[in-house]
């Protein structure tokens, strides 16, 4: 147990370091982008005088390192800063969108994770059977289509015929049941996108364990194959499975901007892309920090679970 706590503390510290490096990298990248907020926000009609006036007003004429240090100073005190374009506190912008993104992630995860693990286990149980191959081929064809395309196909089959809405433009006041209904198609699209990866890893991890001597032993003792998989193989294959689930959950939080566009879903990804488009550095910084925290946090959680479920790792040293 002590090992575990030390590990968590160590990892959290490293996580903070990662976030710091990330904020620096993002800041430099956005700085390196040609053009700045003043030009982008005025678009085709920008006049040099108006651009200069906006720069003066927003302090964009200050040297980059000073702006970064100012931003960092606010950040350390828990202040996400103010959006340059909207002149509104970023926390107000991010909070409702983060809530939507988390809702969609959770919704998708509730469908995709059990589905992937069950399919993966069944595929390993009936490996090389037609069930195995068909589920495998279906999953592979689902991930080999671009997300927007999967979305369009679902819209064609399920939305235009009137079963589900094609737009998931939920607002904070939408009741839960209606939210679930409205977000069904994006959730299904994402399910199709992430299931294959998790399923294949589950299958591979279990089959990997099945080759080990102790499983051979269990076989020889005459234990039923399904029991071997559930009781003997699965617990030992948990670590890689949890890892791949964490990776996919992180993807669901950070990588769904295209699904947001197709289904008109007000999520965090669109905010960040617009932030990049308009060179609104604080918005990009804040959303990338949120994404990165989700990534670091989920990975940490996966490691905790795999360590906690593995007695050998728990008692090491």
């Amino acid at each position: 147990m002590k090992n575990l706590i030390i590990m968590i503390i160590k990892r959290l510290a490293l996580g903070v370091l990662t976030l710091f490096l990330l904020s620096l990298l993002i800041f430099l990248s956005v700085e390196a982008l040609p053009g700045d907020l003043a030009q982008e926000i005025l678009g085709q009609q920008a006049t040099p005088e108006a651009v200069a006036a906006i720069r003066r007003q927003l302090g964009l004429d200050l040297p980059p390192h000073i702006r970064y240090i100012e931003w960092l100073g606010g950040m350390v005190q828990g202040d996400f800063g103010t959006s340059l374009a909207l002149k509104r506190p970023i926390i107000d912008l991010i909070a409702p969108r983060l809530q939507n993104t988390l809702f969609l992630t959770l919704y998708t995860a509730c469908i995709a994770v059990p589905l992937a693990i069950i399919l993966g286990m069944m595929a390993s149980l009936f490996r090389n059977s037609y069930f195995d191959r068909i589920s495998n081929a279906t999953a592979l064809s689902a991930i080999s289509m671009p997300e927007f395309f999967v979305g369009y196909i679902l819209i064609y089959f399920l939305a235009l015929s009137g079963y589900f809405p094609s737009m998931a433009n939920i607002t904070p006041s939408t009741p839960l049941l209606e939210k679930l209904y409205a977000c069904f198609l994006p959730a299904l699209t994402l399910t199709l996108v992430v299931t294959a990866h998790m399923m294949r890893m589950t299958r591979a991890a279990i089959i990997n364990i099945l080759a080990l001597p102790y499983i051979e032993m269990a076989h020889l003792k005459g234990i039923k194959p399904s029991r071997i998989i559930f009781r003997h193989a699965l617990p030992n294959a948990l670590a890689p499975i949890v890892n791949v689930v964490a990776l996919n959950l992180a993807y669901l939080i950070t990588g769904v901007v295209i699904v947001e566009i197709v289904f008109v879903f007000p999520g965090l990804g669109q905010l960040m892309v617009d932030g990049v488009r308009f060179r609104d550095v604080p918005v990009v910084q804040a959303s990338s920090l949120v994404f990165a925290s989700a990534y670091v946090g989920l990975n940490l959680l996966a490691d905790i679970i795999s360590t906690a479920t593995n007695p050998r790792l728990m008692r090491q040293k």
Binding site: F148, Y152, I155, A159, L160, G162, P165, S166, M167, N169, I261, V262, F263, V264
Partner: peptide, 18 residues
């Protein structure tokens, strides 16, 4: 007024009466 960037999304929504 809804901001809908994707043309397919706009047309699907129009066609379903949303």
């Amino acid at each position: 007024t809804l901001g809908i960037i994707d043309p397919t999304a706009r047309m699907s929504a129009l066609s379903t009466g949303a």
